[in-house]
Simulated assay, not measured.
Amino acid sequence: MPDTATDFAAIRRPVAEARGLPNAHYTDPLVHAQERDRLFFDIWAGLAVAADVPATGDAVPVDFLGVPLLLIRDRSGQVRVFQNICRHRGMILVPEPRRIEGAIRCPYHSWCYGTDGRLVATPHVGGPGMNTHAAVDKATLGLIEVRTHVWRDVVWVNLSGTAPAFENTHADLIARWSDFDAPLLHGGADSRFTLTVRSNWKLAVENFCESYHLPWVHPGLNAYSRLEDHYNIEAPGLYSGQGSTLYRQIRGPAGGTFPDFPGLPDRWDTAAEYVAVYPNVLLGTHRDHAFAIVLQPLSQHETAEHVHLYYATAETDPSLRAANAAQWKTVFEEDIFVVEGMQAGRAAPGFDGGRFSPAMDGPTHCFHDWVAGRFAPA
């Protein structure tokens, strides 16, 4: 598919006139490969959450669009990301999640690295019994570190190393949700789950962005948080989504609720917001809990949705946490047939990208415009 401004002109028109992304952006492996650099590697993208490595030495390998990365919490407690390869011959260092008790040891020739990435041992590199060699400078052969930032427990990475600082890139959203600056505490094992959908990752973003589908896809949710209670959120080039003016806390059998995040102004008593931070992180915030969904593209037609729930305190009712997780899992599972149906529809050669409702689809069009802008030449 040619990368010219003309190809994307129709997508970048005002929402009332625009067409959506063409089929190739959901089905063509070549376009999928181009998206790695333009939509993921050159900007801040979501890799995982810090709660995936809760303890010192915890290490989790992550396939990031074909690039082997290692998420680790080092001895100082800092969350870091390295390329998951030995600097000697490129061997994968950590194939499965585990806790690093000593050093990260390459299983091929036993080169060893600290959890901070330093190369600390090179056995027999100078010959049998000779563990050093003048040509092997350990100080310059540490693990290749990936630029990382943690916000709302999401581990954001910038593989190219060229993006502006995260705080500058997302200053608008950080300010928008500044009322929620208190720490987010992961709910634990019962507050995480993964859904795998047979769909391109972008369709999961598009569906999350808008509330237009609520009456038909989420009738239970729409019964108390109606379509008319929602509003669009659009920050071109950065994020988009929806908000609700009628959020109702989940309650236990005796009427108990989760504690609120501290210091919230009254407007959050019945409000909630849900935004897709481009490219692949879906965030929700409420007075008493939050969630983060990191979308992991497995291929151009399959996506893993890693869902995590957070609270203001670690002392929450386990049964209420389980009920909250079950409720959200039901909502997100209800979306699966929609995104998979749209993916199947992208096999129709006559589909031209579709049209947008000017009133309801602004957030989705905002995302399409961002994708087109990353492809179209300046």
Rank of each mutant, 00 (worst) to 15 (best):
V155I: 08
E234I: 14
M342T: 14
Q327T: 15
P14Y: 00
A9E: 07
M91S: 14
P358Q: 07
M1S: 14
L283A: 13
V79M: 06
P215T: 04
V81L: 01
D37Y: 12
A304I: 03
I233Y: 01
G66S: 06
F41W: 12
S225I: 03
L283V: 13
F166A: 08
A271G: 11
E228I: 02
A48I: 02
Q78I: 06
A5W: 10
A182Y: 05
H213E: 02
E206D: 13
D58M: 06
A175T: 14
L143R: 12
D74F: 10
W44S: 03
H308G: 05
G362W: 00
R192H: 12
D153W: 06
L93C: 06
D74M: 09
D37H: 13
V125N: 04
P97R: 02
Q249H: 10
P236H: 00
A5N: 12
R355I: 13
A325I: 07
S160L: 04
H286D: 12
D269V: 03
A276F: 01
N23C: 00
I85C: 11
L93H: 09
H368N: 03
T313V: 08
A290D: 13
F180D: 06
A55H: 15
T169R: 05
T245D: 12
V277H: 01
P29G: 07
A10C: 09
A175C: 10
D317P: 05
L264M: 04
S199D: 12
S178H: 13
I92E: 09
H109T: 01
Y311T: 12
T6Y: 12
A290G: 11
R226D: 08
F40D: 03
P377K: 09
R99N: 15
A121E: 05
D42P: 09
H124A: 09
